[in-house]
Design a binder for these strands. Structure first.
Lengths: 337, 337
DNA sequence: TTGTAGGCGTTATCAA
DNA sequence: TTGATAACGCCTACAA
């Protein structure tokens, strides 16, 4: 039986009102009384009931994040870094982070968002892995529910987000490969409904165009942002009659899968085949050879997003609503560096 | 302004009681009424207020997990897999997962646990990275607060947990290395206060003993379960006059750091130096060469733990309170496989 | 089969 | 400076 404010009041022979105010630091409480209250409350191990406080104050001091997972399992290090970022910042502002998982686009996903929004489960929501036409943005925006996102959409809706310029990043990467002498540069893409795919793909295309290389559609294969997806796609690419000399993965996981397929064929990466990714996950530093990639500061972006979200929650507005970062091209040995 | 049960009742010209009961599936509601209620409630987008329900029912339907992080940053894939496991299982049981981060052993950590327990923030807590003398176990156990843990302690307290037999695993690994002809086998340990360290270290020692090899204390260096820790320790080990021919990391991250140090010295892993880890994280399959490791099914353990925890929460008891799993030795090329 | 009323623990309003 | 009281939204014993 946890101790309630009533217990504390009874013990002190004070009203709950006074105890409550003393604990919340109101200044219309005698200094001596406040002192007594604080001492006894802490002695008794009193902590206010979150539920009661939430009900009364009509806020939860919690932020929600729903990980877009593919069953039955899932482990993109991208997410552990993102969670570390949003979790750290939330914790330092005394907000709880409520996490759930749901497969993107399905009914279950919608159900979780609705439960949280309608049930006032959290004060705000963080979105990631944005889709081109993202129902979550429409829904949250229509519901006037505070949210921020990692990435854009193509909807005509203005919302606070932090984006990473995948297009210019990819263009830079392609230029780098062309400069290294590559002409047959393949791309293992992400699912087409993701914004990051649209951006990265268009950077890939315009990068080739800038180098005067026509796009060969047979060098574009769809992956799914996982190692297996990359592995599978690379097998296909490497059995082409005119196989590529360089393969870009839509993310690092994909690129790591590509490397694996190349190893299996006895190719030496960095010499026989160039490989590059996107994300800058830590394990990309430790592949063999280390992976060239476009680094995005996921941890810091997470913190930044929470900062923005809490501002929206508390102030109702936000000055700088859109932030666009440039990914940093990290040239490593996988592209013959 | 979110819609409450009162709004629904008003619209239906019914009492809130009837609406509540209809929605909760009581059978003393006319079928026709129930139907109307359900339809209208869903039309109006009604979802019960979590806070109100929690207050009334005195439970939160939420489970807490505090990640033991080392600032300023942190990204062991172990945790993303663990979170995926506990998150999936919690979600499928309609429990929320509340996550916070705190540096182990410090005041901030204690503060979070107390806030959650005293403030009835969650119905139960999942512990990981257990310490030999773990104040969390003492605290939760004294508070009679439901919890489960991934790993044991050395306290004389009985609590539900899933453990992985690090000792027998390590013994098996050392035997494997000895069989491969190694005599100078080093160990990069974890912090001494962790149970996993005690277990794995004792497996290391007894494995050597079983092979008739005396322990050389200069071959034991303390790491911190990170890549950098492993890297640093390996630099030290590899500059010894009589340097080791095999290095075991207390976990995979450590082993990956070791591999990096070895690469930097131009050593060929699997030939000049054997390296092995513990955990079976996915990226250990993709190092070069792939890393020999002791695999533990982290995702499934996470699910299992939540299953146990919810049983404790709902039934108050649990039949099978302690589960011990054997890690699986995955022999890969890093030990010359 | 439906409705009335009380209370979960807190905070805010108002009065003393 | 302190206290009585109402209300946040929901559930449930009890009454009708």
């Amino acid at each position: 039986m946890p101790v309630t404010i009533k217990d504390v009041a009874k013990r002190l022979k004070l009203s709950v009102t006074t105890v409550s105010r003393a604990l919340d630091g109101y200044d219309d409480v005698a200094a001596k009384t406040r002192e007594r209250v604080i001492r006894v409350a802490s002695e008794m191990g009193y902590a206010p009931s979150r539920a009661a406080r939430q009900l009364r104050r009509q806020k939860t001091e919690a932020i929600g994040y729903i990980m877009p997972t593919i069953k039955p399992r899932f482990a993109d290090p991208f997410f552990s870094e993102f969670i570390a970022g949003i979790g750290d910042e939330a914790a330092s502002r005394n907000f709880d982070l409520v996490v759930s998982l749901a497969p993107p686009g399905e009914e279950a996903e919608r159900a979780v968002y609705q439960r949280w929004v309608q049930g006032r489960r959290v004060d705000g929501i963080v979105l990631s892995r944005m889709r081109v036409n993202d129902w979550r943005v429409r829904y949250l925006s229509d519901s006037k529910f505070p949210f921020v996102a990692f990435g854009r959409t193509q909807l005509p809706i203005d919302f606070p987000h932090v984006g990473v310029d995948g297009e210019s990043g990819m263009r830079e990467l392609v230029a780098h490969l062309i400069e290294r002498g590559h002409r047959r540069i393949a791309f293992v893409s992400a699912p087409a409904d993701l914004t990051l795919q649209v951006d990265r793909m268009s950077g890939y295309r315009s990068g080739l165009a800038a180098g005067g290389i026509p796009v060969d559609e047979s060098l574009i294969v769809e992956g799914n942002l996982t190692r297996d997806g990359g592995h599978h796609a690379a097998q296909q690419l490497l059995s082409l009659a005119k196989s590529p000399t360089a393969i870009i993965g839509a993310n690092d996981l994909t690129a790591i899968g590509v490397m694996r397929a190349a190893h299996e064929r006895g190719l030496i990466i960095g010499r026989d085949l160039a490989v590059a990714g996107f994300d800058g996950i830590e394990s990309a530093e430790h592949t063999h050879p280390p992976l060239t990639t476009l680094n995005q500061p996921v941890y810091d972006i997470g913190r930044q997003l929470i900062h923005m979200l809490i501002t929206v929650i508390e102030e109702g507005t936000l000055a700088e609503r859109q932030i666009m970062l440039k990914p940093e091209l990290l040239i490593r040995a996988s592209t013959g560096g």
